[in-house]
Design a protein around this nucleic acid. Structure first.
Lengths: 189, 189
DNA sequence: CCGGTCATGTAATCGGTTACATGATTCG
DNA sequence: CGAATCATGTAACCGATTACATGACCGG
């Protein structure tokens, strides 16, 4: 897996858009970067504490008692630029659906088809969500000059989801030929 | 991340095709499942030892001294079928390229374009590799009835790679408009 | 004989999730 | 007032990678 701490990039990047609390950071990452990134609280809070110690972010009192609003320091911005320029560490692939389909003979064609249909529905749902994100992206004023870059990630999600749908249809067609499972399941007359 | 040990599924599945050593297991997973799965030695050997203890695989003397050939037991096959039927645990998304592009304003359009071009070239290379795999899949006799299922995973890889290429072209076009970086880099004339 | 491949395994480490503990605030 | 939301953090655990240690065998 990624040798480098990419959580840092996500946090510094998010704070480069606007200062926020750890909680809001997680919400934002889930809602905005959700289709290509994720972070859990268990990562965010320790990471924020460490970034603060390193002087890359600053903690300010928030509205509510106990709430801290974090913002990027000048050093933090420099660090973000450096981290973004690092080579991308590719995550080793781990696709649970394809693993099951590869050994699909032991599942039978019908079970495989329903896995594929579920994946197709998921992609359809993703597409609908991306349309929402796309609309939101077009709506807000582009104060920071980020919009074009955000569009790239939306495009990626859309292309991926469309490819998944096309694949699912081709895969279902491919399985049409296989009526009787190689190993008939639960058919001990 | 996946709560369940999916390494077990990969190992049991591979051994359901033919018995082999831990080393061959890793080679096979890299070469055959490479475009959607990966395992390292540090996972495989401990996992094999545990599967042996649980009576799901059997160890036999291999050709060379010190080499063990593992094969699936009846209990192992039953376990494989059960594991395959489990719900798929989705891996939380973590796409390093999209993360960088989302914060691409800090990188500038040119750096982003070259990241995208690199990804495009990678997808093109993947497509070539998949053609090899597809040819190999068509060549070997389909003794076990696995071929149709294997085709599904190849199809998935091809659709994904093609989508990546199409996205890359759209993304490059999208970035064409942005000539001057929002933050001009190294241009302190 | 030497380097590459086949082969097995362990130790250190890490990135990340989950669950838990805690408490203030807001809203119906 | 009670439930949902906002908010911060810690501890346990685990899946996984990397690096290391070891050694036999094969081909040139």
């Amino acid at each position: 897996m990624a040798r480098v701490n990419q959580t840092e990039i996500a946090i510094l990047g998010a704070l480069s858009i606007e200062p926020m609390t750890g909680y809001a950071l997680r919400e934002g990452i889930r809602d905005v970067l959700g289709h290509f990134w994720s972070e859990s609280f268990g990562q965010i809070y320790p990471a924020l504490a460490e970034l603060e110690r390193a002087g890359l972010v600053e903690r300010a009192q928030g509205d509510r008692p106990g709430a801290s609003v974090f913002s990027l320091t000048a050093a933090g911005l420099t660090r973000l630029e450096a981290r973004l320029a690092e080579p991308i560490s590719a995550t080793p692939p781990r696709n649970g659906l394809l693993l099951r389909l590869f050994f699909g003979r032991h599942l039978g064609p019908e079970a495989c088809k329903s896995l594929i249909r579920a994946r197709r529905a998921e992609a359809e749902h993703q597409l609908a969500e991306l349309a929402q994100i796309r609309a939101a992206n077009a709506r807000v004023p582009d104060l920071t000059g980020d919009r074009a870059y955000w569009t790239l990630t939306i495009l990626a999600g859309e292309h991926g989801a469309q490819a998944t749908i096309a694949w699912a249809d081709a895969a279902l067609a491919e399985l049409e030929g296989l009526s009787p499972p190689t190993e008939p399941r639960k058919d001990h007359s």
